[in-house]
């Protein structure tokens, strides 16, 4: 028994952090979070531990309850932010610095969550075969694109969020028809990630694809993928009407955060001009803090009009969207 206790002691010592620290549950890959938090550690001496998982962090947090070691949750999608908020796993943060940095429409009315960056669901179009055209998400269901569209799985959070926004604007029945139309236009069964669709355009398998904007920048920066990006235009949909669908990445303070003070300092930092600049430069996303410049590349894609649909509505329609995607057997 003594040995058992010792074993536990040894095992748990792994998770004990030495100096002042903040622990993050992150749905974003650690390699994307690290550059930002490293600067924070340099400035403040507060150590940041990032635990990345793609799935299940909300469940873990819920099960851990008041004993959790996690202080902050970071996500790449509004639905996840709303999920932890609705499950009562967060607490509100009333902080002047953060309020000044993050505009009201990009944070929870009750201050449970805060957006850190916004990202557009763009449409990519072949330079040779389509050109720089005006396009809307609705057009993706039009006859003229029969057999010409490539996309990733309909079940991916980014796809689901787009479908949710369509439900908000057009209702379920219309959206189902639209989904059926898009499915009928697909050049191939949904597969691969957003970049893989651009690659397929380059190879001539399709002419049009749907993908987040920052991937365009990332492909341009990759020596093997540059040719893919060079074969397409990045288009901002629905510029003549409601604007392009936007999603957010964001953060929330956990309800039982053990290092609350340090965590709020980190949250302040993440919304600051410094961190926002790193987000903009390294990840090619749109910073939420007004006045922080886009990366020159992102700026070169031009200003765009964003759909100002409330984030909460997108999250609220999530389940309906999933059901529609199943009903039309989008991925099968």
């Amino acid at each position: 028994m003594k040995k058992l206790v010792l074993l536990f002691a040894a095992l748990s010592s792994f998770s004990v952090a030495a100096q002042q620290s903040v622990n993050i549950y992150s749905y974003r890959q650690a390699f994307l979070v690290d550059p930002v938090v490293e600067q924070f550690t340099k400035d403040t001496g507060i150590k940041v531990n990032v635990l990345f998982a793609k799935q299940g962090l909300a469940e873990r947090l819920e099960r851990e309850g008041e004993h959790t070691k996690a202080d902050v949750v970071m996500t790449t999608d509004i639905s996840r932010l709303m999920e932890i908020t609705n499950r009562g796993l967060t607490q509100s943060v009333e902080n002047k610095t953060i309020f000044e940095n993050i505009p009201a429409h990009l944070r929870d009315p009750k201050n449970q969550w805060f957006a850190l960056t916004t990202r557009v669901r763009n449409i990519y179009a072949s330079k040779d075969r389509v050109g720089k055209i005006d396009i809307s998400y609705e057009d993706l269901a039009s006859e003229k694109f029969k057999g010409k569209i490539c996309t990733r799985s309909g079940k991916h959070p980014y796809s689901v969020a787009l479908v949710s926004s369509m439900i908000s604007h057009h209702g379920e029945a219309e959206t189902k028809k639209w989904l059926q139309g898009v499915k009928a236009n697909l050049a191939r069964k949904p597969q691969g990630n957003d970049r893989a669709q651009v690659k397929a355009i380059k190879e001539g398998l399709c002419d049009i694809s749907i993908g987040n904007g920052y991937y365009f920048g990332k492909m341009l920066a990759d020596k093997n993928q540059k040719a893919w990006a060079d074969s397409v235009h990045i288009l901002f949909p629905n510029q003549k009407d409601r604007g392009a669908h936007v999603n957010v990445s964001g953060m929330a303070l956990t309800k039982h955060a053990p290092n609350k003070e340090a965590a709020i300092r980190l949250m302040e930092y993440l919304s600051s001009a410094n961190a926002q600049k790193i987000y903009a430069e390294a990840n090619m996303e749109y910073p939420v803090k007004p006045g922080v410049a886009y990366s020159p590349l992102v700026a070169s894609w031009g200003e765009y009009k964003a759909d100002n649909l409330e984030m909460a509505k997108i999250a609220a329609n999530r389940e309906k969207a999933m059901k529609l995607i199943d009903e039309v057997k989008f991925d099968l």
Binding site: F8, L11, S12, R63, T68, K69
Partner: peptide, 12 residues
């Protein structure tokens, strides 16, 4: 005060 998550929060 308790030891925290000795099982679920450790290598165990």
């Amino acid at each position: 005060s308790g030891p925290g998550l000795i099982l679920s929060g450790s290598l165990f």
